[in-house]
Computed example of a mutant assay.
Amino acid sequence: MGAATFVEIVLPGKVEPEGLKVRRGVVPVAGPGQVVVEVEATGVSFAEQQMRRGRYYDQPPFPFVPGYDLVGTVLETVPGVPPELAGRRVAALVKVGGWASHVVLDALDLVEVPDGLGAAEAEALLLNGVTAWQMLHRKARVRAGQTVLVHGANGGVGSVLVQLAQAAGARVIGTATARHHEALRAAGVLPVDYRTEDVPARVRELAPDGVDAVFDHVGGRGVIDSWRLLAPGGALVCYGSAATRDDTGSKQWPVLKLLGRVWLWNSLPNGRSASFYNVWAGRAVSKSRFRARLRADLAQVFATAGRGELVARIAAELPLDSAAKALRLAESGTVAGKVVLKP
């Protein structure tokens, strides 16, 4: 295996997608407690869109290999790693490094993918699925009969949120551009056009008493409207700052400002709650607890898909060396679901 070649995509600096570099080399060797995973699918998330602009709040220094998550097959194991892992399809969150043909990972960070779930489908449900599940069930604790507002209901996370909320028995209002409304209606979502409609006014028409939860990846000043749309006892879950993607200046400031608003709102005695979701929360405190929670929640996501209550929304599947095209497509705002790269 040491003589085999591999491919990875390098982000050299603040560049347009066409500035990505292809680097070839030799497949790395696993160390103690590690495995080499041959990547079958990785994805384009909003994080990579921010990273190429230098706008992701804790990205590593340039140059580096992007790729927030991946699905692949364990090539072989080393002493100290369960030998039955060899040949198994696994999933992993990595934050960076996923846009490669092979990746070395700690065996404890792997989550096995159930038989019957394809690599691209599992990839589309990995970061998006665990994010949606944890926000819905661990943060907002959505219950049957409630009404929720999902911003970007056609997107990678948004489309999973919609389905998981419906599986929990909730009524869903979703924002999206008009081109996605027919599909959203067919899926049982009440669509709102964030470009042409007064979103707060329209949501109040659909939910006069307010909504029980809002899932907001947009940030910026619009998050104030999200807070005001909550019903008594409602929960706002923020998980991004898409509105500031093309801004200049400090990349930490949008997140810090959002955290400040969350703190202020939670200090108000009105029964509503606000939180900022980070999929990595708790990892620095206890890796074992973080891994157990990730494994349990992702198992729930995969099981929901296995029951037919959750369908992976794949916008496009492109080869790894078309990463620039994939990134352009993901940033275009014209697609529904996840853009998947297949080495």
Results as ranks from 00 to 15, higher is better:
residue 300 Q to P: 06
residue 308 G to N: 06
residue 108 L to P: 06
residue 60 P to K: 10
residue 277 Y to R: 05
residue 229 L to H: 04
residue 241 S to R: 12
residue 77 T to F: 00
residue 102 H to V: 04
residue 185 R to M: 08
residue 129 G to D: 08
residue 175 T to I: 06
residue 65 V to M: 05
residue 99 W to Q: 00
residue 275 S to C: 14
residue 107 A to T: 05
residue 184 L to E: 00
residue 190 L to A: 15
residue 86 A to G: 12
residue 30 A to F: 00
residue 212 D to Q: 13
residue 58 D to G: 07
residue 73 T to N: 09
residue 119 A to Y: 01
residue 44 V to H: 03
residue 34 Q to H: 08
residue 266 N to K: 09
residue 95 K to W: 12
residue 49 Q to F: 10
residue 294 L to F: 15
residue 63 P to N: 11
residue 313 R to C: 15
residue 88 R to N: 03
residue 55 R to G: 07
residue 234 G to P: 01
residue 89 R to W: 00
residue 34 Q to F: 06
residue 276 F to M: 12
residue 108 L to F: 10
residue 333 G to F: 08
residue 175 T to W: 01
residue 151 H to Q: 14
residue 143 R to M: 13
residue 56 Y to H: 08
residue 272 R to V: 08
residue 91 A to P: 03
residue 317 E to Y: 02
residue 52 R to Y: 06
residue 329 L to R: 03
residue 30 A to H: 05
residue 310 L to Q: 06
residue 173 I to L: 09
residue 84 E to K: 13
residue 139 K to M: 12
residue 35 V to A: 01
residue 186 A to R: 15
residue 297 D to T: 08
residue 146 Q to Y: 05
residue 58 D to W: 13
residue 340 V to K: 05
residue 284 A to S: 13
residue 62 F to T: 02
residue 74 V to F: 09
residue 227 W to M: 09
residue 336 A to S: 15
residue 87 G to P: 07
residue 332 S to C: 06
residue 119 A to V: 01
residue 287 K to N: 14
residue 13 G to L: 09
residue 165 A to Y: 04
residue 223 V to L: 14
residue 111 V to T: 15
residue 58 D to T: 12
residue 27 V to F: 09
residue 195 R to Y: 07
residue 27 V to E: 06
residue 262 V to I: 13
residue 132 A to N: 06
residue 253 W to G: 09
residue 257 K to Q: 14
residue 204 R to W: 02
residue 14 K to E: 15
residue 7 V to T: 15
residue 60 P to T: 09
residue 53 R to L: 15
residue 309 E to F: 11
residue 225 D to P: 07
residue 32 P to L: 10
residue 300 Q to L: 11
residue 67 G to M: 03
residue 103 V to P: 02
residue 54 G to N: 01
residue 7 V to Y: 05
residue 238 C to D: 11
residue 240 G to C: 04
residue 99 W to V: 08
residue 291 R to K: 12
residue 26 V to Y: 12
residue 302 F to R: 01
residue 33 G to I: 04
residue 189 V to Q: 00
residue 278 N to P: 04
residue 279 V to R: 04
residue 17 P to V: 11
residue 13 G to W: 04
residue 115 D to V: 13
residue 318 L to T: 05
residue 78 V to R: 15
residue 146 Q to K: 07
residue 147 T to W: 00
residue 318 L to E: 03
residue 242 A to I: 12
residue 226 S to A: 10
residue 202 R to F: 06
residue 2 G to I: 13
residue 5 T to S: 14
residue 79 P to G: 11
residue 32 P to K: 12
residue 14 K to G: 10
residue 43 G to L: 12
residue 263 W to L: 15
residue 15 V to K: 06
residue 77 T to S: 07
